[in-house]
Amino acid sequence: MKLTPIVAALRVRCLRFENRVGGAAQFKAIPDAGKLRLPAAYVVPAEDATGEQKARTDYWQDLTEGFSVIVVLSNERDEKGQWASFDAVHDVRAEVWKALLGWEPDPDAHEIVYAGGMLLDMNRFELYYQFDFTVKYEITEEDTRQQNDLNALDDLKTLSIDVDFINPGDGPDGPDGRIEHHTELTFP
């Protein structure tokens, strides 16, 4: 799944971030490389999970592709000396849900669904919270090497048929290995 449309949707629909939404390859890179002013959000790829291959003659498999939105909020104490970021996580989640849940950014996929969230890290200055999402796809023969190989074959032009009749009177039942009839069909 392409994550650029996710980043763009969060920039437009989550005004709290004031356009401070980026992508990151993995969470470990965010504290070192992610230097956006707070609050900020980062979209990162997550796990893919597949189901069994369901077809015997072609290809059909379910794929659940995941991505996460990691938000970084200020964790400094408010004027009462309390950590305000815990309440902010609830508010941010509502904004992120309204930006993403039920949306189908890829016409070949189902809608985005929420898969959970968790606290990643917290210190005196920052709180990192991860919201997980999934999108379901179907992998079909059009996505495979096999279909590309089949598409590269020449069109069927001639069908050659050899027939070995079963003659139960000449011994054991079944074909005897002699071709009694041959025909060819030529297609335009």
Rank of each mutant, 00 (worst) to 15 (best):
V12M: 10
E141R: 08
V21R: 03
R16W: 04
V69C: 00
W103Y: 05
P5E: 02
A115G: 06
L100D: 04
N151R: 12
T158D: 13
V72Y: 01
L3M: 08
A46S: 15
D155S: 15
K80A: 14
V113N: 07
Q147P: 03
L36G: 06
R37N: 11
H181N: 06
V21D: 01
G23V: 00
Y137M: 02
S160K: 14
D173H: 05
G169V: 12
G66V: 03
N75L: 01
F133L: 08
L150Y: 07
R145F: 15
T140I: 09
Q53G: 07
V69A: 00
W60P: 00
G81Q: 06
M1E: 05
I139H: 07
D91A: 14
A46I: 02
K98E: 12
E180C: 04
D91M: 10
D143V: 00
Y59E: 12
F131H: 04
Y128A: 10
G171L: 14
A8E: 15
F125W: 09
F17W: 08
D78P: 00
P188D: 15
I139G: 08
F86A: 09
L10Y: 03
E79D: 12
I179W: 04
R20N: 11
A115K: 14
G34P: 00
R16L: 14
F67E: 03
N148R: 15
D58I: 06
N19A: 11
D62F: 08
Y59H: 15
F165M: 12
D164F: 01
I30T: 01
G116D: 07
P5G: 04
G171A: 13
D155Q: 15
R178D: 10
H90I: 07
D91P: 00
V92E: 05
D106P: 07
D155G: 14
W83L: 13
C14G: 07
Q82N: 13
I179E: 02
S74A: 07
A109C: 11
R37A: 15
P172M: 08
P45T: 05
W97E: 11
L159E: 08
I6E: 01
V7C: 06
A9C: 04
T64H: 04
G81W: 05
Q61P: 01
P39D: 03
D132L: 04
I70V: 02
Y137S: 03
R77M: 07
G66Q: 06
E65G: 10
E79K: 09
V44W: 06
A115N: 09
V96M: 06
I6Y: 08
V163K: 06
R77D: 02
F131E: 09
N151F: 13
A94Y: 10
K35Q: 14
L159I: 15
E104F: 03
I6P: 05
K35C: 02
G34L: 13
G117F: 01
R56N: 09
W83C: 03
N148D: 14
V69F: 02
K35S: 09
V113Q: 11
G171C: 14
E111H: 12
A94T: 12
A49S: 12
E111C: 11
E76I: 06
T134W: 03
N123I: 10
D176H: 11
D121R: 12
F187M: 07
T183C: 09
A49D: 12
D87T: 05
V71D: 01
D149N: 06
L36V: 04
E184F: 00
F165S: 11
V12R: 15
D149A: 12
R13K: 15
V163H: 04
A84E: 02
W97V: 03
R37V: 13
N75R: 06
